[in-house]
Design a binder for these strands. Sequence first.
RNA 1: GGUCCCAUAGCUCAGCUGGAUAGAGCAACAGAUUUCUAAUCUGUAGGUCAUAGGUUCGAAUCCUAUUGGGAUCACCA
Length: 588
Amino acid sequence: MDFIIEAALKAIKHLYQTELTAADISLQETRKEFEGQVTIVTFPFTRFSKKSPEQTGNDIGIYLQNELKEVSGFNVIKGFLNISLTDAYWLNKLDTEILPNDFALFKPNGKKVMVEYSSPNTNKPLHLGHVRNNLLGFSVAEILAAAGYEVIKTNLVNDRGIHICKSMLAWQKFGNDETPETSGLKGDHLVGKYYVLFDREYKKQIDELKQIGQTEDEAKKNAPLIKEAQEMLQQWEAGNKDVISLWQTMNSWVYAGFADTYKNLGVGFDKFYYESNTYILGKDIIDEGLEKGVFFKKPDNSVWIDLTDEGLDEKLVLRSDGTSVYMTQDLGTAQLKYNDFHMDSSIYVVGNEQDYHFKVLFLILQKLGKTWAKGLFHLSYGMVDLPSGKMKSREGTVVDADDLMAEMEQTAKLQTEAMGKVEDFGADEKQQLYHIIGMGALKYFLLKVDPKKRLLFDPNESVDFQGHTGPFIQYTHARIRSVLNKAGYSNTGKVGIETLSGIERDLIVSLSQFPDIIQVAAAGFSPAIIANYLFELAKAYNKFYHEKSILQAEDEVLKQFRLQLSDASGKVIKKGMGLLGIEVPERM
RNA sequence: GGUCCCAUAGCUCAGCUGGAUAGAGCAACAGAUUUCUAAUCUGUAGGUCAUAGGUUCGAAUCCUAUUGGGAUCACCA
């Protein structure tokens, strides 16, 4: 559309002797209820045109129509100049841009970006909150890759700490050597079971201590179980062989379980970082910060940074006993990741409860003079809540990721069977389809909304399969493939027709926006933009499908064109859904 | 208490850097299948964009205050 802006600039210069730049012209899609495809807002020009918005629009409209062969007409309503482009223009666009295989394919832009997501704890299985995180991270990575970035997907696994020791201790005490094999439980679920068990026993001890007169806080500190867990953590840090061995065993169970869940979710990583390796890092940065005077030491030897000038607080970066806190680790890990990859930017997909932490982290790195710190971005997303409130692993009130996926597949199965369209499928093929549809519904449900907003998930009202949903878009794809197959379609080059109906033009306009949409979504790290675009596109296609007969078109040339249009729509849907991590079936 | 995020139809959400009469889906109601997949399509109904000011030719969008919801401000991670 740049050529219209350029021509409009020339028009304004010619008509009103005023030099503007492209940024001064606001070009937008024409609203559906008006004639035309692009609209220029003329209010801002009245200052120097010294005419009414209508008159100004008219002047520019006439100029554009005379100068540009692509402009077939225009109309002015209030301050809006609606421009119609010729069918030849749109058909040419379809022919030369949209139909070729390199449509919406961006060349590498030479920029490297890291997306860190998932970042699980190894003491319990993944739940719905993690699902949102994983899908967001994966999708953002796909979108950035499509936009031309070199992407490194990383996962920083939180594999050490007191919470892990809780699971270990509970297993040691109450586990009777239970393993995933003997129990038949998935490894992460087995470990999670002991995490919950720990908490239950711990609470009992707290209650007992309160009975004999201790306060809540005292009881929490004095309960024998928590003391044992803390001791275990110290032994872990000291490298006690038995503790390390137990830790390795239980972590390996968890990793096997996670691998399954990740596979089901369809996400993956290029590089894993483990906190057990990185938690000691960051001490160098502390020294560096002290030298540069960014940090200061308190009399007890703890190290702090004063951020009160920035409207934040004083923040501890190293304990008085010289051990790391979360911030120390993250400083070190940030440096490590940069040393490993020298990326231009780095995106942390982490929940919004850590907004403050990341704000501080990035600020500290900037104050330390790390030039790469300006490329850091916290992609913060809202919590997923249940109707009953917050999910809490310890209390077992979570929607488990594995259970949820199984339920989605089950629902997909019931819905599909009720329709009876794929009875000729083999058992494996059916299972595969249920997976695709169930996951499509779930993924779309989670990705179509702005990440910033918290999400309410009601397990009783299972995710929809109709309307603004993943299966709606998947269905549109299946429908397209069905027509193409029936027609024995193969791409035959040139589009033969010369005039378009309204809905056909709308569809081409919609398709032509896809590359821009990818770039906008990449710039905003927003799968939701892709999701909402695909819904609009699928709606437009379905409308076209109802209004126009494809196989029964009036003549062969028209039929071929409609097949080409269908093919192009199907490809964009497939690629776009791919950016959301959603597969599309050939039939459903 | 300080800071940050959110508030749009009964419900779930779009609304890009300010632009036209604020749009979808679900739910409700009324229709469409001798024709390419009805997980579809068409229509009806549903709004003081939390409230009050301000900036502007123009505000759901920007600014300020207020209200409501959430998060955070640990020598936890």
